Amino acid sequence: MAMNGTITTWFKDKGFGFIKDENGDNRYFHVIKVANPDLIKKDAAVTFEPTTNNKGLSAYAVKVVPL
């Protein structure tokens, strides 16, 4: 089920960042999981599918909501 969130941290040079989800949890995401990576920036609103990996909470099918 899709969730909403906000990008809180973005490491462009490393290709990953973190999203604060609607429950207040931080989720890892990688640029290859983003549909529109050219719009990635700190504080951008996103929708995504929540999941977990071996390191904890993460996100896939991430879409940055255009302003």
Rank of each mutant, 00 (worst) to 15 (best):
K63W: 13
S58T: 11
D21V: 02
V46E: 00
K63D: 05
P66V: 14
D38A: 12
A61S: 11
P50S: 04
Y60R: 15
E22F: 06
D38I: 09
G17R: 02
I40C: 07
K12A: 12
N4H: 14
N26H: 12
P66W: 09
F48E: 00
E49F: 15
N53V: 06
A35T: 12
K42S: 06
T9V: 14
M3I: 07
K33G: 14
L39T: 06
F29Y: 03
P50K: 04
D43Q: 09
H30S: 12
E22L: 07
T47N: 07
K55R: 14
I7D: 00
Y60K: 15
A59N: 02
A45E: 08
K42N: 06
N4P: 05
G5C: 03
V34G: 04
V62M: 03
V46N: 01
K14N: 06
H30D: 12
Y60I: 15
L39N: 08
K14H: 08
Y28C: 06
L39H: 10
T52A: 12
G24D: 05
I40Q: 01
F16P: 00
F29D: 00
P50N: 02
M3N: 04
M1A: 12
V65N: 08
A2Y: 12
T51W: 15
G15N: 07
S58H: 06
M3L: 13
T9D: 11
V64I: 11
K63L: 11
D25P: 01
L39M: 13
P50W: 03
V34S: 05
D13T: 11
A2N: 12
R27I: 05
Y60G: 13
D25N: 09
V31E: 07
T47A: 05
T47F: 07
N53Y: 08
V34R: 03
W10C: 03
A44M: 09
V31D: 05
N54Q: 13
R27K: 00
R27S: 02
V46R: 01
A44V: 10
G17A: 02
F16L: 03
F16C: 05
V62Q: 01
K55T: 08
Y28H: 06
A44C: 09
N26L: 15
N54S: 14
I19W: 02
L67Q: 13
G5T: 01
P50I: 07
N54I: 11
L39A: 10
T47K: 08
K12F: 07
K41I: 08
L57Q: 05
G17D: 00
M1E: 10
T8A: 08
D25F: 09
F18M: 05
D21G: 04
V31R: 14
I19L: 08
F29L: 03
P37V: 06
D13K: 11
F48L: 03
K14G: 06
T51R: 13
K63N: 10
V64T: 03
I40P: 01
A59H: 02
T8V: 14
K14S: 08
I7A: 00
V46H: 01
N4S: 11
F48A: 00
N26C: 14
V62W: 01
Y28L: 05
G24N: 06
N53F: 07
T47D: 03
M1L: 12
K55V: 10
T51S: 13
P50R: 03
A44G: 05
K20H: 12
T6A: 05
V64W: 02
V31K: 14
V65T: 09
W10Q: 01
F11H: 07
A45G: 07
A59S: 06
L67G: 13
I7W: 02
L67E: 14
F48T: 00
A2H: 12
P37S: 06
N26W: 12
N23T: 05
K41P: 02
Y60D: 15
A44K: 05
P50T: 04
E22Y: 06
K42E: 08
Y28Q: 03
T8K: 10
N54W: 12
D21F: 02
F29K: 00
D43K: 09
V34H: 03
K33P: 03
I32L: 15
G15A: 06
M3S: 05
T51K: 10
K63T: 13
G56C: 09
L57C: 05
D38L: 10
I32E: 14
K12P: 14
G15M: 07
V65G: 06
A61C: 13
F29N: 00
M1C: 13
P66M: 12
F16M: 04
V62R: 00
I32Q: 15
Y28A: 03
N23R: 10
E49D: 06
K14A: 09
R27T: 01
L57H: 05
H30R: 07
W10K: 01
N26G: 05
P37W: 05
A35G: 08
T52G: 10
E49Q: 15
L39V: 06
M1W: 10
K12Q: 09
V31A: 08
T6F: 11
G56R: 12
D13S: 12
S58Y: 08
F18V: 07
T47C: 09
W10L: 04
N26M: 15
K41F: 08
F11S: 04
G5Q: 01
D13H: 12
E22N: 07
Y60V: 15
I7R: 01
A44L: 06
L57I: 05
K41R: 14
K12T: 07
I7G: 00
M3R: 07
D38C: 13
L57G: 04
K14R: 12
V46P: 00
N23Y: 11
V34M: 04
K20Q: 09
W10M: 03
A61T: 05
K55Y: 15
K42L: 13
P50L: 04
V34P: 04
A45L: 12
N23F: 10
G24Q: 05
V34D: 04
L57F: 06
D21I: 02
N36A: 04
D38M: 11
V31N: 05
P66F: 12
V34L: 04
K63C: 11
D13I: 09
T47S: 07
T51Y: 14
L57K: 09
V65K: 10
K55F: 14
A45N: 10
K41W: 07
V62H: 00
L39S: 08
E49R: 13
T6C: 12
F18S: 04
M3G: 04
F11A: 03
V46L: 02
N36Q: 06
K12L: 07
S58D: 04
W10R: 00
T51V: 14
P37T: 05
A59P: 01
D21M: 02
N23E: 06
G24F: 04
I40D: 00
K55I: 10
R27A: 02
T8R: 10
D21R: 00
V31H: 08
T52V: 12
N36E: 06
K20A: 07
K33H: 15
A59K: 01
K63E: 09
K12W: 08
N4L: 10
A35Q: 14
A2R: 15
F29E: 00
T52W: 11
T9G: 09
E49V: 15
A45S: 11
D38P: 07
K20L: 14
N53C: 10
K33A: 15
P66T: 14
F18A: 02
V62G: 00
N26K: 13
L57P: 07
F18G: 01
T6P: 00
F16G: 01
L57M: 07
D38V: 08
